[in-house]
Amino acid sequence: MRKEEILTPQELEAEARLRADEERWIRENFPDIVGQHPNLLGALQMARMAAEDGECTVLLTGETGSGKELVAQAIHENSCRRAAPYRTVNAASLPAELADSLLFGHEKGSFTDAHAATRGILREAHGGTVFLDEIQELDLRVQAKLLRFLQDHRVIPLGSVGEPWEVDVRIIAGSNENLLDAVAAGRFRRDLYYRLNVLPIEMPPLRERKEDILLLANHFLAQFNEAKGCDTALSPEAAAALMAYDWPGNVRELRNLMERLVILCRNREIRAEDLPREIVSGAPELEERPLRTLREARAVVVAAFERDFIYRQWAAHGFHVTRTAEALGESRQWLSKQLRKYGLTTSVGRRARPRLAP
């Protein structure tokens, strides 16, 4: 039995308003993270809980370029630690012999070239947050020391014989691989994995949230158009090619491409032939149907735009059909038909979000 058949209309409307309020909070407090896909919104809801908690360790997983660093910084900036330092460390860039010193500090003379004592990143971020990205690359000896820190929040600088320093720092760890695989391979400590995995957040790859591709593309185009004084837009054919591509580099790859296209195309429409070959070759409509008309391409994108516009208006009016229809200047019957046509229901959190056309 469907939820719509169990709950009363009032309960359904209250649930829809709650979801709309949650999505509004995300848009206002995580403005740099763009998307409407349920998997992304679920991850951001977890990030909101992490921000409101302010203390628990967070494990962010997801492919390279999926937005882990943006989410880590958003968690910090929306937490009670926002006024304290935020530090990002890429474990893959830490030489094994220096990782201990860089994180925990060292005393003068503790090793060759240690001409002065250093505090280390953890002490420098006292009261704030440290994001340890690609943590699976951290040297096993340093993993043991990090585990101890997570247990007692004390820092012992390399070469120190004095009392440990009490440090209040929240750790957010990031990884672009399944840490349990690293544990099985003997590259990562199992006990450290469980200590980090207090609040896991998985960032979905862009290929699994196709609905967000055009939303992100237009978001980046607007940013770069404003920064560079340009007026560049996507053609329907280019939009279709972006939608068909799998984006192995995720959001970062899309962002970099939009910047390149604004530079190259400047004040004209971005056409399919302006896109890299690997993107055009991934669009079956463009490859298999070379005679596809502009009218057909435009119809696809216009339908996507209409669906997105209706959804946004519906959400803005608390998912109230009559009020939304009045705002659109249409009848309630017309709007109900469009909602059915585009598969939009009051259980919006479990439905695919509409995609944004250029």
Score class of each variant (00 low, 15 high):
residue 351 R to G: 15
residue 7 L to V: 00
residue 54 G to N: 08
residue 11 E to T: 03
residue 210 K to T: 12
residue 287 E to A: 08
residue 117 A to E: 15
residue 98 L to S: 04
residue 273 E to A: 10
residue 5 E to R: 04
residue 305 F to I: 08
residue 232 T to S: 06
residue 163 E to Q: 14
residue 149 F to H: 02
residue 262 V to E: 04
residue 157 P to V: 02
residue 342 Y to G: 07
residue 65 G to H: 00
residue 79 S to M: 04
residue 207 R to C: 13
residue 82 R to K: 07
residue 340 R to S: 06
residue 187 R to C: 04
residue 226 E to T: 12
residue 11 E to M: 08
residue 217 A to D: 10
residue 61 T to I: 03
residue 308 D to R: 01
residue 309 F to Y: 10
residue 186 G to Y: 11
residue 15 E to Y: 11
residue 355 R to T: 11
residue 195 R to H: 09
residue 354 P to H: 06
residue 291 L to Q: 14
residue 96 A to H: 01
residue 151 Q to P: 03
residue 305 F to Y: 10
residue 45 Q to D: 05
residue 267 N to A: 00
residue 112 T to Q: 06
residue 92 A to R: 11
residue 237 E to R: 01
residue 235 S to F: 14
residue 30 F to C: 00
residue 143 Q to I: 00
residue 244 A to S: 15
residue 56 C to F: 03
residue 211 E to S: 08
residue 261 L to K: 14
residue 271 R to V: 06
residue 86 Y to N: 03
residue 35 G to E: 04
residue 232 T to E: 04
residue 127 G to T: 00
residue 12 L to H: 03
residue 324 T to L: 02
residue 71 V to A: 14
residue 341 K to S: 12
residue 253 E to D: 13
residue 294 L to Y: 15
residue 4 E to P: 09
residue 154 R to D: 08
residue 135 I to G: 05
residue 188 F to N: 07
residue 88 T to Y: 02
residue 288 E to R: 06
residue 11 E to I: 06
residue 284 P to T: 07
residue 143 Q to E: 02
residue 340 R to M: 15
residue 136 Q to R: 06
residue 339 L to Q: 09
residue 67 G to L: 12
residue 217 A to G: 07
residue 306 E to N: 08
residue 271 R to D: 12
residue 347 S to L: 11
residue 231 D to I: 10
residue 90 N to H: 06
residue 25 W to Q: 15
residue 301 V to T: 12
residue 244 A to T: 09
residue 177 E to R: 11
residue 302 V to Y: 13
residue 77 E to I: 09
residue 308 D to S: 02
residue 300 V to F: 14
residue 15 E to R: 08
residue 59 L to K: 06
residue 114 A to N: 11
residue 55 E to R: 03
residue 141 R to I: 04
residue 192 L to H: 09
residue 57 T to D: 03
residue 330 E to W: 15
residue 325 A to Y: 11
residue 171 I to S: 00
